[in-house]
Simulated assay, not measured.
Amino acid sequence: MMLLPLSDLSSGRDVPAGDDGALAVAGRVIAQECAGLDALAEALGADTVLRRGFAAAVGMIDALPGRVVVSGIGKSGHIGRKIQATFSSTGTPALFVHPSEASHGDLGMMTRGDAVLALSASGESAELADIITHCRRHALPLMAMTCRPDSSLGRAADIVLQIPAMPEACPMGLAPTTSSLMQLALGDALAVALMERRGFTAGDFGTFHPGGRLGARLKKVNDLMRTGEAVPLLPGDASMRAVIVEMTHKALGCVGIVDGAGCLIGIITDGDLRGHLDRDMQMTAARDIMNSRPLTVQADILGAEALRMMNDRLRPVTSLFVLDPDGRPEGVVHVHDLLRAGVA
């Protein structure tokens, strides 16, 4: 199969049928949708209805005591569900209400303190009529994401997020393609702008994503560390024999050495022991062979960061002691704990 240059794929010129023709169509679609995104970005950067509406929407949602209720029908409804999911996972409470279900009881899901984000490219989706009426009756702020500010939806809205009118990528200009992508991108822009305004952190993100690989990567050290009797600790005057017994019993390949106040003053690894086997085990104290400058972490850092610290050393370490602000061990995390949790 002969592949066409990218310039041919995006130009829209006639090409042979078959695989090459399909690739040419793909190129035209992507180019058209990219043009839509460019137009959206330009509208946000100029003095436009969209720019003013976007700023107003972010300010209003940020101060909202309730939730963002997202609604739309058809392709706009599918995009709306994704926008609602992105809001919910990034710290903006939101739910999706189907317009038809709203007319049969689900209007009760919209309460005082909520705001509504309604999506309709044309702004004339009849199914949204009851939601618009409900917003007016109960003084719920209404945001309209539409291509037509002068539409029924646009005129009823308190805030209009005007999507630039761009040709659909469909050859008939009918199937929502470019307009749907622009709706999706604008919803993402709202969610990210709200995240940054609120100082939403990776830790916050982790609380909403506890499952799967993403959830694992966002777990903190205090979710993964071993605590209590599982932590190998000995005083500085412990003998090498005691160190070997404790290290063998706890099976982490290390022992933490603490002072009289319980603060960590050093660490002994199995490698340190092997390097001092020529010493008298009864006469050598733990403080004599310990590393007095061990790598440690605090409990509130991400497990992924702890794993990076382990691997960034010239000689990678396998265990990190977790200290409280006073320097006392709260726990210990082993590289195997991180790998089993799916942090890597």
Rank of each mutant, 00 (worst) to 15 (best):
S88W: 02
P325H: 11
V160F: 06
D114N: 10
R274C: 11
T227L: 07
G80I: 06
R340A: 12
V322A: 06
E196A: 12
R217I: 02
M145Y: 01
E124G: 00
D326K: 06
L117D: 08
R226T: 04
L142S: 07
D106P: 07
C34A: 15
S152D: 04
R148S: 07
D8E: 13
N291L: 08
L320T: 03
I301P: 02
L194Q: 05
A139G: 05
D14N: 11
L161D: 06
L323W: 01
L218C: 11
A144C: 05
L218S: 09
T296C: 15
L9W: 02
G80L: 08
A251L: 03
A43M: 10
I244S: 13
I73A: 15
T92P: 07
A169W: 08
A56W: 02
M309F: 08
D38L: 12
L119V: 12
L44W: 11
D20Y: 00
S292W: 05
C34N: 13
S122C: 00
D204Q: 13
G303W: 04
I73Y: 05
L194Y: 05
L23G: 01
S180M: 06
T177I: 01
I244Y: 06
G262N: 06
R197C: 07
S88V: 01
G74V: 07
D204L: 05
A202Q: 15
I61R: 08
A193D: 04
A251T: 04
T178C: 04
I267T: 14
V49P: 04
G271W: 10
K82V: 00
P93Y: 10
L9D: 03
G105N: 02
V333S: 02
V322M: 06
G260T: 04
M166G: 00
E330S: 08
D106W: 03
L323Q: 04
A102I: 03
M240T: 09
V297F: 00
G154M: 10
T90G: 11
A102L: 05
T284P: 12
P5A: 13
L174H: 04
L6N: 11
P99S: 02
M1W: 00
L224K: 06
H209L: 10
D8R: 01
A57S: 13
I30W: 12
M310D: 03
A251W: 03
T248N: 12
L264G: 04
D223H: 15
M110K: 04
I257E: 05
V317Y: 02
P329T: 07
A46E: 15
A285Y: 05
